[in-house]
Amino acid sequence: MEKERTLILIKPDGVAQRHIGEILTRIERKGYQIIALKVTTATQEKLRAHYAQKVDKPYFKDICAYMMEGPLVAVVAEGINIIAAFHRMAGATEPLAAAPGTIRADFGCEWADGNLRNVVHSSDEAQSAAQEIKIWFPELTEK
């Protein structure tokens, strides 16, 4: 089996609640390697590229507001089947629907403003991972 790479974003709520270390530890405990990591901020340009399929949706403005609330941590991690594995580790999109023990179940919560804040983003397939890595880590060369 061949190693693959994925993009993981620890979103502003995960950063603000100080869950960076625990999330990175979970990745490493599974035996995956962190290839690149940086604290950064989202821009409209990056978010339009990252969420290109959602730009025309009515909730896109809320996504941008959430992702620009504060700094985030962008991570490129590598390993065999890491895309599927980290997607399972993250849990369901809605924190209340996420299985116990997943990142979103453990660290996600309901917010008074009703907006969805779910701690992490994870690529859902190899093609989207490659595109997302180029957006957040343009300095990396393709594997």
Rank of each mutant, 00 (worst) to 15 (best):
L140Y: 04
V73P: 10
A129K: 02
E142D: 14
H121Y: 15
N81S: 09
K30C: 01
D113Y: 11
I35A: 05
A126R: 14
A130Q: 12
Q53C: 00
K11N: 11
D106I: 00
N118C: 09
T93R: 05
G101T: 02
I82T: 01
Q53P: 00
Q127A: 14
W111Q: 03
I34H: 07
H87C: 03
G101K: 06
V75W: 04
R26G: 08
A98Y: 04
Y59Q: 09
V76W: 10
K3Y: 06
T93Q: 07
M68H: 07
M67K: 05
T102W: 12
Y59V: 05
D106P: 01
R18H: 14
I20L: 13
D13M: 10
T40S: 14
I133M: 03
D62G: 14
A52W: 09
G79N: 03
E139Q: 15
Q127N: 04
L116F: 06
V73T: 10
Q17A: 06
P100E: 11
K46T: 05
T40D: 13
C109R: 15
D113V: 07
A52E: 14
R88E: 14
R29N: 14
D13K: 12
A130V: 05
A84C: 01
D113I: 09
L140R: 07
N115S: 13
N118I: 05
F107W: 10
K30M: 08
A98D: 08
Q131F: 06
K143S: 09
P95E: 10
T43N: 04
H121C: 06
L7V: 02
I20E: 15
S123C: 01
A126K: 15
Y32E: 00
A130N: 01
I8P: 13
G14M: 12
D124Q: 02
I103M: 09
I35T: 12
V73W: 13
R29W: 00
G108I: 03
S123K: 02
A126L: 12
I34C: 07
D106G: 01
L96C: 00
E2Y: 02
Y51F: 14
Q53W: 00
Q33D: 09
K38G: 04
Q53K: 10
D124G: 14
L37K: 04
D13P: 12
I27H: 06
A16R: 13
I83A: 00
H19I: 04
S123M: 06
A112K: 12
I83D: 00
A85D: 15
I8G: 09
V119R: 13
A16N: 06
A126P: 02
D56E: 15
E22T: 13
L9A: 07
I20R: 11
V55E: 08
F60I: 14
Q53M: 03
L37S: 02
E78Q: 13
K57R: 15
R104N: 09
M68Q: 15
V119S: 11
I23A: 12
L37M: 13
Q53S: 06
E132C: 07
H87D: 00
A92G: 00
Y59S: 11
E2F: 02
G21M: 11
E142I: 07
A105N: 15
H50P: 05
Y51E: 08
T6R: 04
H87I: 00
N115M: 15
